[in-house]
Every structure is written in C-alpha cells, then in structure tokens.
Amino acid sequence: MTQSTGKRPRVGLFATCLMNMFRPNVGFAAAKLLEDAGCIVEVPDTQTCCGQPGYNSGDFDSARALARQVIAAFEQYDYVVGPSGSCMATIRHDYPVMFEDDPDWLPRAKALAAKSFELLSFLHDELGATPAGTRHLATATYHDSCSGLRGLGIKGQPRELLAGVAGLKLKEMQDAEVCCGFGGTFCVKYPEISEKMVEDKIHNIIESGADTVLGGDLGCLMNIAGRLRRIQSPVRVFHTAEVLAGMANGPGIGGHSQESR
C-alpha cells in the first residue's frame, strides 16, 4: 500500500454528474472519508461525465470522446475514486474495451482503469479503512446497485464499513440485488416498466421494516427516493458515504429540512 511507504496517495475525486448537481454532500463526504484515511484529495475541474450515457445509448464515438477527456484529466493521480459503482465500472471495465483498436489510447485507458475505484470498495479493500466515531441512529436496509455489485463485486464492503457506525442497524430486504428500475436513460425511455420495477423495490424496502435506505449509487438512490417521496413514505434515503462520514444529519435525498429524525 502506498501508505506504508510513508507517502500519502494523491486521489483524484471523480465528481459524478448526479452528485455534482443533486447531492454535493456526497462529494464532501467522500473527500472526508478519503482524507481521514490518509489520502490527498483533488478535484480536477476539467472533468465532466464518464461517457456512460453515450456508451449505453450505442454512441460509442461520443463515449470515447468523453473517455479521452477523463483519462487526460485523471491520469496524473495515484488513484481515481468516485462515489458510484456505475461511473467507476465504466472507467474500470468499459474504457479498455472502448479503445481495443486504438494503440495510442489503449495503454492509457488500461492504466487509468487499473487505478480507478468505487469509493466504498476503495476504502475497504485498498486502504483497509475503518471509519470510526460516527453515529447514526437508524434501521437501514441496503440496496445493492447493479453495476457495483455485478460489475465490481461490491457486496460485503459497504456492509462491513457500516458495521462500525454506532446506532445503525442493518436489516436486509428481499431481493436487495435486483435492479431498482433506474438504468440510466432506461427510466425515462420506458417509464412504465421502470415504475413497475421501482414499485417492487419500494415494496421490499417497506416490507423490511427499515426506516432508511442506503446504497452506493445516486442514480438508484434518486429513483428510489423519488418514488418513496411520491407515495409519501417517511423512509429516508442516503448515500452510504454520507452516513460513514457522519454527514447524514440533514435531510435525506429528496427530503426536506423539516423532516423528522
């Protein structure tokens, strides 16, 4: 580990589009967790989007244009870390595939992929971090986001990290590993199917008896939170980083300041 050599690793924080616009608190929580674990955190302002919307829409050219921008913005760092399994899986898995036939960019894409990590798995697997001293009184259920779970093998890490949060009880829901119906542009291209899927997810959340939903991807969390708000459910939604960093004292995603604790 870089830490053991005495040198603090320089981490480029990948500010995902949804985090940047809708939930900056997650970005600050991520920065705090990384810094507490001994990293130097920087946020290059030449970053925009990882390119996934283009890639998953079949517009590979545009996706590559965005990927080149990300590579150029981040290849200077020891690590690239983002609070999203989805964006980070794109960088880790898809970038090397996108540049398979491009001898100039392929090595750069591969090099970046190798040092890019989703936040929670990075804290747990790479840094061996155990955030301590935080407290969050809640009974939470965990939604495993698909890209993180199946793309990056994230399942135990967030749960183990959360085990260190005082006052927090984890209660698994049925089908925690089943997609919530977000799916990027899927949710607006096929709203009825997406609604059915998020409805199934909400049903399982409510059945679990939890008062809080946690997860590692804002897309899913905004979908779930938006649906919970729509049916006026009191269940609150946070990104796991917010709870781990002790920064989940404000309203949950889509919630408001008057909501009861």
Binding site: A15, M19, N20, M21, F22, R23, P24, N25, G27, F28, A31, V43, D45, C187, P191, S194, E195, V198, M222, N223, A225, G226, R227, R229, R230, I253, G254
Partner: peptide
C-alpha cells in the same frame, strides 16, 4: 413516476 430531488443550489464543483 417519481419526484425529483431538489438540488442544494450550488454544484459540488462550485462549492469545492
């Protein structure tokens, strides 16, 4: 289908 969470007012990059 669902509500859209209201942004906090400034982007993360701005605040950072």
């Amino acid at each position: 289908v669902r509500d859209l969470p209201t942004p906090e007012g400034q982007t993360f990059l701005q605040r950072w």
